[in-house]
Design a protein around this nucleic acid. Sequence first.
DNA 1: GCGACAG
DNA 2: ATCTTGTCGC
Length: 207
Amino acid sequence: MTGYRLPSTPAAAVRQQKEIAKKVVARDDHGDIKLVCGVDVSYRAGVAHCSAVVMDTDLNIVEQASTKSEIRHPYIPGLFMLREAGPILRTLKRLDRYDLVMVDGHGLLHPRRCGLACYIGVAKDKPAIGAAKSLLCGSVRNDNYIELGGETLGYTIAAEGRKKKNLYVSVGHRMSLESAVSLVRSMTKKGEWLPEPLRLADTFSRR
DNA sequence: GCGACAG
DNA sequence: ATCTTGTCGC
């Protein structure tokens, strides 16, 4: 069964995160990844605007969908899913097909090993990757891997340009960290910070 | 208790 | 994330 009821309180969200964390598969458990979906949410005038962009591995746009939702929860570090899971799941329903979801936020690199990317991945039972623009927890080692509580849960893709920021990748679901990093790299254009599916989803959600 | 804290 | 113009730099 793949259905999860969206929590309506922080306490309920924490309980669900602990439950879902046990179901995350951190190894490659998927077929060919041909269509990658990037999702992002932006906020304007009290409304959440979510966009999803599906691209093939040659970075061509295959499909796109957008939704507007009422904002029901504030942003709480560690409980990002409480605010964005609803809008994202609604938007994903409108897509015809995709083999993996890239989420702007963390996956296993989370206090309870259940960031937004894990939540979306397990809820949809789809391979998922978390790609965050800043660190929530954990410490970056010299080899760029990120560890938390003795576990290696993420990887830092160092910024190129002097002025740009790093990208923090972690497993969402049904993927190994190595494969996740490899896929993010292969879909990021030279000189860009975010992989194309996420960069375009970000652009579209703001229009 | 104190500080840190995805977007 | 968002509020926000012009401006510095590749």
